[in-house]
């Protein structure tokens, strides 16, 4: 049963420098649901049939090796209390090393790579850990403003234990000079929060003669129905 609802103060949801937000950001405030029985406090689950063992390796989805700098990206997915999100689906998609997506509508004048589709997925382990092997994507232009370039980034999708914890976001690479110029990243107005979207180069994760390692931990926001039992210990 729904208890009560009240409008909440609007937080920044549009970002004028990112032009795509103009006609797509709701003008009205979000309506707060405070129902302890809300369906959104639970969420979908995934299992072994939803992935294959090779899905986490984007360099092994075709007959040949993709061109680019081979990298691994790994980290832990946790909730606001620090509890690991176990057995949940993580999805990754990205441009190829030249900065082009394997998507028909991406007509950037950069080559497609027949050995790279740029989509991966995995389930988190018991510690909430995910891991992908891929190639570092290229930066690419977009028509947001004159000479607009997106910094190299990986798109990620996460599921928590509740639908309220759903997260789609982008991971960036440390030291990229385009980070300071990107309206999409700058749409996150808090500098400390922006920093949480930038992975760390992790030399301990680099494999000699093989790949460079990056570490990126993720914290899912939002309430869920299962925290009470865990806290009751």
């Amino acid at each position: 049963m729904t208890r009560t609802t009240a409008p909440v103060p609007p937080r920044p949801r549009s970002c004028p420098p990112y032009r795509g937000t103009r006609y797509r950001t709701p003008a009205r405030p979000l309506v707060a649901v405070q129902d302890p029985e809300a369906v959104e406090l639970t969420g979908p689950v995934f299992g072994a049939a939803d992935i294959t063992p090779l899905d986490h390796d984007l360099t092994r989805q075709h007959t040949g090796e993709p061109i680019g700098e081979r990298i691994t990206v790994t980290g832990r997915v946790r909730d606001r209390r620090g509890h690991p999100v176990r057995g949940q689906l993580v999805e990754l998609w990205q441009a190829n090393a030249a900065g082009r997506y394997a998507h028909r509508l991406d007509q950037h004048l950069a080559p497609l790579d027949p050995n790279f589709t740029g989509c991966g997925r995995c389930l988190t382990d018991d510690e909430g850990r995910y891991a992908f092997t891929t190639v570092r994507p290229g930066a690419y232009p977009w028509r947001n403003h004159v000479n607009a370039w997106r910094p190299a980034h990986l798109h990620f999708s996460f599921f928590g234990t509740a639908f309220t914890q759903r997260l789609v976001t982008q991971m960036y690479f440390p030291g990229d000079p385009l980070l300071a110029l990107d309206p999409v990243l700058l749409s996150v107005t808090d500098e400390a929060a922006r920093a949480r979207l930038v992975a760390a180069y992790a030399h301990d994760l680099s494999v000699p003669e093989w790949s460079l390692g990056y570490r990126w931990d993720v914290v899912l926001d939002g309430p869920c129905a299962t925290l009470f039992e865990e806290d009751g210990r």
């Binding site: 990112y18 795509g20 946790r78 909730d79 606001r80 209390r81 620090g82 999805e91 998609w93 441009a95 997506y101 394997a102 998507h103 509508l105 991406d106 589709t117 740029g118 989509c119 798109h155 997260l167 789609v168 976001t169 982008q170 999409v184 990243l185 749409s187 996150v188 808090d190 400390a192 929060a193 922006r194 949480r196 979207l197 993720v218 914290v219 899912l220 926001d221």
Partner: peptide
């Protein structure tokens, strides 16, 4: 723990 911010899904997710 401080939450990871959201970012737009972008235009090119249809193949993923």
């Amino acid at each position: 723990h401080a939450p990871t911010p959201s970012q737009t899904i972008g235009p090119f997710h249809g193949h993923a």
